[in-house]
C-alpha cells in the first residue's frame, strides 16, 4: 500500500474522530490501518434497535481507487447482507464500478446505517429476505428482532 493511500486513510480516520458519527464506534489499529473494526448500534426505530453489530472495513491496496470492502461480523437478518459467515455487502457506492475516490468512509458508514433503517430491496443479495420484507413486513421484523436477540446483544 502506497504512502499516499495510508495518508488518506489516516486523514479519513481523523475526520471520523472529529465528526463522531452518531451510533457507532471505530476501533483503529495503528499497526494495521487497512482494517477497521466498527461497532454499530442498531438505529432507533428500526428492527435492529438495541443490537450492537460488529463490522469490518478492509481497505484494498488500490484505495481510494477501489472501494473498501465492508462485512458484518455479527450475523444480521438483512436483505442486503449475505447470510453466511462472510456477511458481505455489495451495493450502492460500495460497488467497484460506482465507487469514486472522493467518497469517504463516513459516507459508507452512513449508507450502512440508512440501509438498516430501510433495506434496499432492489439490490437484495438475499432475495428471500427481501421478498419477506416486501410482502410480509411483520414476519420480517419478527425474524430480524429474533436475530438481534440471538446474535447482536
Amino acid at each position: 500500500m502506497s504512502a499516499s493511500a495510508k495518508k488518506r486513510i489516516m486523514r479519513e480516520y481523523g475526520e471520523c474522530m472529529t465528526e463522531k458519527p452518531a451510533g457507532m464506534k471505530i476501533n483503529f489499529d495503528e499497526q494495521n490501518m487497512t482494517k477497521w473494526e466498527v461497532l454499530m448500534d442498531g438505529p432507533d426505530g428500526s428492527a435492529y434497535a438495541g443490537g450492537h453489530f460488529k463490522l469490518e472495513i478492509v481497505f484494498p491496496n488500490e484505495y481510494p481507487f477501489k472501494p473498501p470492502v465492508v462485512s458484518f461480523r455479527t450475523k444480521i437478518y438483512h436483505p442486503n447482507v449475505s447470510n453466511d459467515d462472510k456477511g458481505s455487502m455489495c451495493l450502492g457506492l460500495l460497488r467497484p464500478d460506482e465507487w469514486k475516490p472522493p467518497n469517504k468512509v463516513v459516507a459508507v458508514l452512513r449508507l450502512i446505517q440508512s440501509l438498516m433503517v430501510e433495506p434496499n430491496i432492489d439490490d437484495a443479495i438475499e432475495p428471500s429476505i427481501g421478498n419477506e420484507y416486501k410482502e410480509n413486513r411483520k414476519e420480517f421484523e419478527k425474524n430480524a428482532k429474533d436475530w438481534v436477540k440471538r446474535y447482536a446483544k
Binding site: G92, L93, R110, S114, L115
Partner: peptide, 9 residues
C-alpha cells in the same frame, strides 16, 4: 431513487 439521499457524497 430508493437510495437514501445522504449517501451521495
Amino acid at each position: 431513487q430508493s437510495r437514501p439521499a445522504d449517501i451521495e457524497m
